[in-house]
């Protein structure tokens, strides 16, 4: 997994609550047997019309957000289905950080397996980012830097500086791109002992 230490990119605003994983990647695209190639189907029903043509009003179809690598959105992002295709689609599109006031549990866990940071901030801080986007030059958009080492989000001029909290284990996972299975297999002897002790 690719480590995530510091990331700077354009922030796309998608201000709706409860965006579910069916919306992030509709089911007709779950039939692939690879982890890649889901980016073009990200937010499919919002991004494309029924004729398959891009919907010019949808944020990710409008420059500069076509190049967005950070998404700021409403609370309870990623609710619904457990499909890991949702973080795969976000990553494949180029998103490395999603900022919201809250995330659904399974989606949150899934992100860290893929080097995607679901960044939780209090709603007023999320609202400040939405405001900063509105005030930014519309041709360039707002650039934010997310520093996973210092646990800080800031804009280029440091007018906006927001610290954030992250579980140290998950921070470590991102910083070093750690593979969970390899970490668990270090405890192989404990697992075997558990199975023997409990007759499993």
């Amino acid at each position: 997994m690719e480590p995530l230490v510091r990331h700077r990119g354009v922030v796309a605003p998608l201000n709706r609550p409860n965006i579910d994983t069916d919306q992030i990647i509709p089911k007709q695209f779950l039939k692939r047997i690879e982890r890649t190639g889901f980016g073009e189907f990200l937010f499919y029903d919002w991004r494309y019309g029924e004729d398959g043509k891009p919907n010019p009003e949808f944020v990710l179809n409008r420059p500069p957000y076509t190049q967005a690598s950070i998404l700021v959105t409403g609370p309870n992002f990623g609710c619904g289905s457990s499909r890991e295709h949702a973080p795969w689609a976000l990553m494949d599109f180029g998103i490395r950080v999603v900022i919201a006031a809250s995330f659904a549990d399974i989606f949150y866990q899934n992100c860290f397996k893929n080097g995607l940071l679901p960044l939780t901030l209090p709603q007023p801080e999320v609202d400040r980012i939405f405001q900063a986007i509105e005030q930014a030059d519309p041709s360039t958009g707002l650039y934010l830097t997310v520093d996973v080492e210092r646990l800080l989000v800031h804009d280029d001029r440091h007018q906006l500086e927001i610290p954030f909290a992250l579980d140290p284990y998950l921070q470590e996972t991102l910083l070093h791109g750690l593979d969970d299975i390899a970490r668990t297999l270090k405890h192989e002897a404990l697992i075997a002992a558990y199975e023997a002790q409990h007759g499993k």
Partner: peptide, 20 residues
């Protein structure tokens, strides 16, 4: 409870999960 595909792989490989 439900898990993502990386966790499916984790359980297949280790018969365990790592979660808070």
């Amino acid at each position: 409870f439900g898990i993502g595909t990386s966790e499916v792989e984790h359980v297949l490989a280790t018969q365990c999960l790592v979660q808070p």
